[in-house]
Design a protein around this nucleic acid. Structure first.
Lengths: 136, 136
DNA sequence: TTTAAATCCTATAGGTATAGTAGGATTTAA
DNA sequence: TTAAATCCTACTATACCTATAGGATTTAAA
């Protein structure tokens, strides 16, 4: 299960992507139309900005805009920023690798190989899908 | 990320599957060899028993055994029992469906379609893999 | 110059799930 | 009778999620 943070973040990115390049979109507008808690969404937008997906303009008439063309933003990047690793165990994560405390060797771990397959099947989807694909 | 419960549960099933049919395997042995907290594993084994994967024998010389041939136990069943839904959002779950509070319509939800693709790619892996495949 | 609108930032709280632990009840082979 | 094993209930500690609160800062426009 993905977190609401991830779900909200994707919805917000798609919403912003529907607007013209550099046209600012306010958090309050996104929150209203997408049924998201405004303050919570604020924090999510900050995260997406720090990750480089969004730019912002402060003050009256300000808001957020996409910094990259939507067709260039792969969902795998978005997921890693919002949700974390694509892999379901740290020991098969490409970007967030960690050794398991309980496994003496990954080569002989029964779970390991299954998780690699799941990771790769998810990566295939997330690598070929972009924000532009989610804009209807 | 899957829970340790799921990881431990899979390892335990695979461990039991390596033994002869109806030969009992003790929780303490699995816990020792797989580096799992014995009491925690106890609870997991109970879950797997109630789900029909394992049978048990109480008392001295007792333990757990597989109730079904390992090549008949699909990983998708195991995952659903231990981890819950395969889908990453309830609104695309086949076995644990729930409507989203925030979405007025699933047809127009940008997240929905991506999550269906992720679900199906995971299902493809989990449907074709069995416990027997994880036994080396 | 003032005001309102907007992002930005920190701290905190409440709820829930995870990963156990504790202690005993029950069953069974030897 | 004893020891070994599953079975069962209840509890705890920690971390994470989902916000909320309150303000600081910046900016356009009146």
């Amino acid at each position: 299960m993905i977190s609401k943070k991830t779900k909200y973040g994707i919805k917000a990115l798609v919403y912003v992507a529907k607007h013209k390049h550099k046209e600012t979109v306010q958090v309050s507008l996104i929150a209203d139309t997408q049924n998201i808690s405004p303050k919570y969404l604020e924090a999510i937008m900050l995260t997406l900005k720090k990750a480089g997906f969004l730019g912002s303009k402060k003050g009256k008439g300000g808001g957020y805009y996409l910094r990259r063309p939507p067709e260039d933003i792969k969902m795998v990047e978005v997921m890693r920023v919002l949700e974390g690793p694509v892999a379901m165990v740290p020991c098969v994560s490409l970007n967030f690798y960690e050794k398991c405390d309980d496994c003496p060797s990954e080569d002989f771990c029964s779970v390991n190989r299954l998780m690699i397959q799941l990771r790769d099947s998810s990566l295939a989807v997330l690598n070929k899908t972009t924000i532009a694909d989610l804009v209807v």
